[in-house]
Design a protein around this nucleic acid. Sequence first.
DNA 1: CCAATAAAGTTCAATCTTGAACAATAAAGT
DNA 2: ACTTTATTGTTCAAGATTGAACTTTATTGG
Lengths: 165, 165
Amino acid sequence: MNKNQALPSDARSLPWDHPRFRSWIAVARACQLMQTVLTRELATLDIKPPHLDILINLFRFEGISQQELARKLLVGRSNMSMTLPQMEKRGLIERRGDKKDKRVLRLYLTEEGRRVTQSAMAIQTSLIERTLSEEPLEQCMAMAESMERLIVRLHADFDDEAETA
Amino acid sequence: MNKNQALPSDARSLPWDHPRFRSWIAVARACQLMQTVLTRELATLDIKPPHLDILINLFRFEGISQQELARKLLVGRSNMSMTLPQMEKRGLIERRGDKKDKRVLRLYLTEEGRRVTQSAMAIQTSLIERTLSEEPLEQCMAMAESMERLIVRLHADFDDEAETA
DNA sequence: CCAATAAAGTTCAATCTTGAACAATAAAGT
DNA sequence: ACTTTATTGTTCAAGATTGAACTTTATTGG
């Protein structure tokens, strides 16, 4: 019985024999598909999922800084520096310097941005509702709670590895 | 009571009031974090999640064609045409022409590729087990079943929109 | 007050991904 | 047999993302 455990690289005990592994693969696959379909449906508004993520965050947290936004979205600051000016040129958002701290740029939705955000959220919500409608509400809630726990755990790993490096 | 429902673009009834929407956002966020952490841990092997996806599929389905692989991974054929030659140069995989059909290239792992795949799978499995260890097995299984159903539903949408276009 | 350090944002080069146009081969229809 | 249509894989240009180096502004410590 020690034999198998002593050989981590052994072909026995393949990952797909682990129930949690299989479960997670299903989660990842569903996410990827959802993303793909969402990308297609958002095309009518000429925006992509990353833009929607930004818009939704500005919708909820008006006046957030680029840094804070990048952290929330788990992307690099440079990403924001490349993407936000484009969205500004398209008239979706506005960037104004902070009065107190001249380093930070605070972000706001324009009226047009707010309209696009609401249309896009309607598309996303409809897709999600349509896709999850057959799943019992209890099951959805239980899933959400599990995911919240995973997020906490993963964030610990994330920050750990970041400061170790 | 009719007032609110008659205004779909109204600011009331925000997406995050819908329990299924909130649930899915949590799923998406957990996935993204998992991906980020996995990317960091795979760096020691000098491969990235897309490479691992390819390796795992070759591990399971030896002799698969580029087309089939692209379909499984939900990426474009051009992606495979760009990525696979790199992996071939790194000695992880091998591409051999099909005898019957001169159009198709069939994919195989090299010995080195098999070693790397096993190391990478060990990393991924360990990360998943570590992250999901506190979730009851029943809950994991229920989640997996939900996800399988979502995948079926989304795939229907996916194919629909593809052939409509 | 001044030097050192930290933080916010930008720039740039490298890498990934995608979709459209293309070449080669196979399958179908006549 | 032969023209048309499909399929497989490649190429190319455009767009997205990242990490490192850099600039400007704040903060900290002497």
